[in-house]
């Protein structure tokens, strides 16, 4: 639902970076989005395509790199893979998990000119 804000946030970062890194066009954007980032990738692609028109990223392509969700299980003392916040530890069944990776929502890299 807020993917439009997120897409516009991307454009803002690009505009700021265009000044500081001295480029005028963005051809490709790589994002890292974790499964716990409350972002729907398809919705974000749709919004991205809508907001880039007429900006420095007009026609840019979007690459979304998925990251695995990881959590530290307090029950069995190890790092385990999770897909959702309500997942139990796949090893011991505990819900005492501290998310260590998976809520990222970052612009990793740009192809610019």
């Amino acid at each position: 639902m807020h993917e439009m804000s997120v897409a516009e946030g991307i454009i803002q970062v690009l505009e700021d970076q265009a000044v500081s890194q001295n480029f005028s066009r963005v051809k490709k954007v790589w994002l890292e989005i974790g499964p716990l980032a409350s972002i729907d990738s398809d919705a974000l692609r749709f919004c991205f395509d809508a907001v880039i028109r007429g900006t420095l990223a007009d026609n840019a392509s979007l690459e979304i790199i998925g990251l695995p969700g990881l959590a530290w299980c307090l029950g069995c003392g190890q790092s385990v893979a999770i897909q959702q916040r309500y997942d139990a530890c796949p090893e011991c069944g505990s819900y005492h998990l501290q998310v260590t990776q998976g809520d990222e929502m970052r612009i990793k890299e740009l192809e610019v000119e």
Binding site: V6, V13, M105, I107, E111, E113
Partner: peptide
């Protein structure tokens, strides 16, 4: 064309 690593949070 060049690559720029920015590693920035979208929000």
């Amino acid at each position: 064309s060049r690559m720029v690593q920015i590693e920035q949070d979208i929000l």
